[in-house]
């Protein structure tokens, strides 16, 4: 479940040139923050966009972890927030050239930075990220998947994002499957769902889809939404009925069904299945 719609002060239209200029300057941090988001949102192809966004990733590396508002800190926006927007933008823009920079961020001390780096590397289907991701997850549910401190919402690693990235990247070696599988029994439903999602993508084995479908009946709306997004991200066509019937707002069901129509898994499915998906979407408008 990694749909993060951080749209800072949406509604101030700027041009691509203006966005580049705002990201190039280093005085006004709020402007840099907005520009990084804007370039991703518009999937900019400006030749300076990727280099500038990569620079924004690295402005953080010289700082102390978790702290260090950069010079010119304004309006509560700091270098970390800008780096996070930059990572998301690079993923959205499918900026393959940024993979080495994102791999650096995957080693950051900061949890949230590792999380967005993993998400972006997943978006980029970056095979080069597999060793780092599997290394971080290899300690399993009692290591990487353990709360970072007693009662903390954060685990030692951003497992959800890392598991999802491995699924997106699509390398299905036995070793990788073995590292992911224990997380399918994680006590937290969102982690469980992320692991099942990755395993479903990598193996196309319907039993993983059934595990996610069970979560569509979970009493917490947040879990139902996460499971829905996960089935949509895989594009698992047999889940059409379950998605249709879950108690979630139509907007989210539409996003999940869009995934079904666009990814259409398992791969043996035919175009007529897509018509059923489109008809289900029509009924939700």
């Amino acid at each position: 479940m990694q749909e993060s719609n951080t749209s800072p002060t949406e509604g101030t239209p700027i041009s691509e040139g203006e966005a580049i200029a705002r990201l190039r300057q280093t005085e006004d941090m709020a402007n840099r923050y907005y520009a990084a988001w804007w370039l991703g949102r518009m999937r900019s192809r400006h030749p300076e966009a990727v280099p500038l966004l990569c620079q924004a990733l690295h402005r953080i590396s010289s700082l102390e972890p978790e702290t260090g508002p950069e010079k010119g800190h304004e309006k509560g926006v700091d270098a970390k927030a800008i780096a996070m927007n930059a990572a998301r933008a690079l993923g959205r823009m499918n900026a393959q050239a940024s993979i080495p920079d994102l791999l650096d961020v995957l080693d950051a001390d900061d949890y949230r930075l590792r999380e967005v780096a993993a998400q972006a590397l997943g978006d980029l289907k970056a095979a080069a990220a597999v060793p780092a991701l599997t290394n971080r997850l290899a300690s399993g549910t009692n290591g990487a998947g353990k709360p970072s401190s007693e009662g903390s919402p954060q685990l030692n690693e951003p497992c959800e994002a890392m598991l999802e990235a491995l699924g997106e990247i699509g390398n299905s070696s036995a070793e990788i499957i073995a590292i992911i599988t224990p997380f399918s029994n994680h006590e937290r439903p969102l982690i469980k769902s992320a692991a099942c999602r990755a395993l479903l993508q990598l193996t196309e084995d319907n039993s993983w889809a059934m595990s996610i479908e069970k979560l569509l009946n979970h009493p917490q709306p947040l879990v139902r939404r996460g499971a829905l997004i996960d089935l949509g991200a895989v594009g698992w066509l047999p889940a059409l009925k379950a998605i249709n019937e879950t108690q979630v707002e139509n907007s989210l069901k539409l996003i999940a069904l869009k995934g079904l129509a666009e990814h259409g898994r398992p791969s043996r499915m035919t175009p007529t299945h897509n018509i059923h998906v489109l008809e289900a979407m029509d009924a939700l408008l």
């Binding site: 869009k258 129509a261 666009e262 897509n274 018509i275 489109l278 979407m281």
Partner: peptide
């Protein structure tokens, strides 16, 4: 957007 193209084609 792929799904919009699909729907318009349909």
């Amino acid at each position: 957007t792929n799904v919009v193209r699909q729907r318009a084609k349909l």
